[in-house]
Design a protein around this nucleic acid. Structure first.
Lengths: 239, 239
DNA sequence: GGAATAGTGTCTATAAGACAGTATCAA
DNA sequence: TTGATACTGTCTTATAGACACTATTCC
């Protein structure tokens, strides 16, 4: 049926990154403005091709993450999201992209014109609402990634990746509120979170204005059991 | 920093399939015996390279599924699981494999020596326990896939993909029991399942021995809300 | 003492889990 | 009538959600 000399077709492998963070209590993502064709001038997820044939996929993702955010690799949550390889998604040829989800604590605003070429934080709602259309099929990657993050919040300690080393219970709650787009009662929230043993460890207290807040750091328990479910998948727009 | 003529390195793209089904109330998966190097003689997941540069990844997965099971593409659940591309996973070169999870109702046993070359159903426990080691990194794909299926059972109608068109409540319960490796109380199970509106539709009744059982077919509701959680991630061995 | 913020306890309603008896059909 | 299987209802306990007051610090 097939010729003896048949060879599988080569493809180009890329990684794309959906980097999420919290800014002003709203969920933001990092985009870069494309400087060349295709989609020149459009916003896109940071990403790029494998650099050489021996580069691991996760390594490529970490490399892109460092290039865009200057973030030490071990301080950021990074996981594979899915692979997007539809024919025609990239006019340059058969490009298959392994999308990744990264979650970082709040970072300084990138300076336009520096080596982080025109990177900017934008509110994810601008993409989810369709107001801002990204290059390639990146709109879909964003939707898939946000939904993944929302579901992971119910079962894992992913939310702590949005916070710094130490954080208060109120800060952790704000992470949940921003990602889920709902508001939570801090008394019930605090009760449920503290019921999971090994999830949060005490880490002193912080004094600002008013009563000092207890500080926590993420514990060893990375999986929430029982899970902490969001009430319902009702409306998806806040404010 | 980089040369002007730099080109991204090409890779070979493959798809692999973890095809799950229920046989004798136990979770089974399809494996094929490799007829050539590398890993000649070892069991492996069914899969293969993209056939040509314009083949969609999902199409390649469907093609492999048809080749191995002769299953009409639209009767089987198929979803992307993850991408495995570690350097050195395949001695033939840089091969990146997009693993898929497929779930099918019970199928006839493949006949050895026919065009479905030495395919066989094996109990997933044999792989999870380490008794049987598959080729490449397929052990990991199996572990990831089973865990994915188990978690999806809590939130979706995935379980109905193991059943035929119509099924009884007891049959659906057996699917959950086999995949989760625990036993459930049919009264509580039935109550929870029927509480989700649009999840099951009545489809007559089946008469065998004893009182006839009500038959159901999968409804439009594909997402369980509230979710149906398995009790706890305690032991992972049944029997 | 007042302003600002953090922290906690109780009550109620709903869901979960344990449990055993009744209904339907064929032989 | 018996055997075989399917179906269901109640009670108890645990969890979720609504809700308001007290505690600590700084000024």
């Amino acid at each position: 049926m097939t010729v003896r000399e048949w060879q599988p077709p080569p493809v180009l492998l890329a990684v794309d990154l959906l980097i999420l963070t919290l800014r002003a209590s709203r969920l933001h993502m990092l985009v870069v403005e494309r400087g060349e064709q295709p989609f020149q001038g459009r916003m896109a997820l940071p990403g790029g091709f494998l650099q050489h044939a021996d580069e691991e996929i996760v390594e490529a993702a970490h490399r892109e993450l460092r290039e865009e955010t200057a973030l030490g690799a071990e301080k950021v949550h990074l996981e594979q999201l899915g692979t997007y390889g539809t024919v025609g998604r990239d006019p340059r040829g058969r490009v298959v992209s392994v999308a990744h989800l990264a979650i970082a604590p709040e970072l300084p605003t990138p300076q336009a014109g520096t080596d982080a070429r025109d990177a900017a934080w934008i509110a994810v709602d601008d993409v989810l609402s369709g107001q801002l259309q990204l290059a390639f099929d990146h709109d879909r990657i964003v939707r898939d990634g946000i939904e993944r993050a929302r579901r992971r919040f119910e079962h894992s300690s992913l939310a702590t990746a949005f916070c710094g080393d130490v954080f208060t219970m109120a800060e952790l709650q704000q992470v949940y509120e921003a990602v889920w787009g709902i508001s939570l009662d801090i008394r019930n929230f605090s009760r449920k979170i503290k019921a999971v043993s090994g999830f949060l460890l005490p880490a002193g207290r912080r004094t600002t204005a008013g009563r000092p807040a207890l500080l926590y750091r993420a514990g060893q328990t990375r999986t929430l059991s029982p899970p902490f479910m969001r009430p319902a998948p009702n409306c998806e727009a806040e404010e």
